[in-house]
């Protein structure tokens, strides 16, 4: 039967061996991190963004690289998913973007701080994360259902789908947009997107800072959403 000194030897040798291996792997990892994370793109703006991220304990609600709290959305790929315009709008006034939803602290960030945060998210979003976050495979089957209007403009998939769904994909905060082209003409859609409050005072739809070109893209795309058009 195992003696106490043998048990102690097992403990000490195992600890020393695996401790040494761990330190060696740590050294190796640090040599590989720069290539995997595009450390060359780590400019001052990104670093300032990281510090804003920490000073406000953003990971006390959100996750980044899957780490943090589970109260607010994962932000690793937020730059691709929502784009800079949405992030800026959200950082300026979260409740204007998601009225009546789970609340985020309204920080009084200035323009420079917002652009630092966006730079930080863009840098994080380009890291090679060994496959994280995974692409949703079941939902993509629904998205493959033919939608009229051709390819969805980027501004639509990044911003509009945060609240609205089309073909079963997207948020449920605002109404679904299937067949919206049957209900409204282009002129109305343009006025609506440009200033929702002017069309329907008291609406929860936020006024989004889109460019003229983006507004045109969205309006043309939406006006093609006709049930008969399929």
């Amino acid at each position: 039967m195992l003696s106490k000194s043998a048990a102690r030897a097992f403990f000490l040798s195992g600890t020393l061996l695996f401790g040494a291996v761990f330190i060696w792997l740590t050294v190796d990892t640090f040599q590989r991190i720069p290539a995997q994370t595009n450390a060359g793109d780590l400019n001052e703006s990104v670093v300032r963004g990281k510090h804003i991220w920490e000073e406000n304990n953003c990971m006390g609600c959100h996750t980044l690289l899957g780490e943090g709290a589970y109260y607010a959305p994962e932000l690793t790929r937020v730059y691709d998913r929502r784009g800079p315009a949405f992030i800026a709008a959200m950082l300026k006034d979260p409740e204007a973007v998601y009225p009546g939803q789970r609340r985020m602290v309204k920080y009084d960030f200035n323009e420079e701080q917002i652009s630092d945060m966006i730079a930080f998210f863009e840098w994080i979003g380009r890291m090679d994360l060994n496959g994280f976050p995974p692409e949703p495979t079941i939902g993509m089957a629904a998205a493959a259902i033919a939608i009229p209007g051709g390819e969805r403009p980027q501004v639509f998939t990044q911003i509009c789908t945060a609240c609205h769904s089309l073909g079963g994909v997207g948020g449920t905060i605002g109404p679904a947009l299937d067949g919206v082209g049957d209900r409204f003409d282009r002129g109305y859609l343009m006025r609506w997107i440009t200033d929702p409050q002017a069309v329907k005072p008291g609406t929860q739809m936020p006024k989004l800072e889109l460019t003229e070109e983006q507004r045109n893209e969205v309006v043309i795309f939406l006006s093609k959403q006709r049930e008969a058009g399929l």
Binding site: T15, F18, G19, V21, F22, L25, D28, T29, R32, I33, Q36, T37, L65, G66, E67, M127, D128, L129, N130, G131, F132, P133
Partner: peptide
């Protein structure tokens, strides 16, 4: 000790 690796899957560290 090496189990620490389960925190190093998806944070920009090597795939090993």
């Amino acid at each position: 000790i090496l189990g620490t690796g389960h925190h190093y899957y998806f944070i920009g560290t090597p795939s090993y």
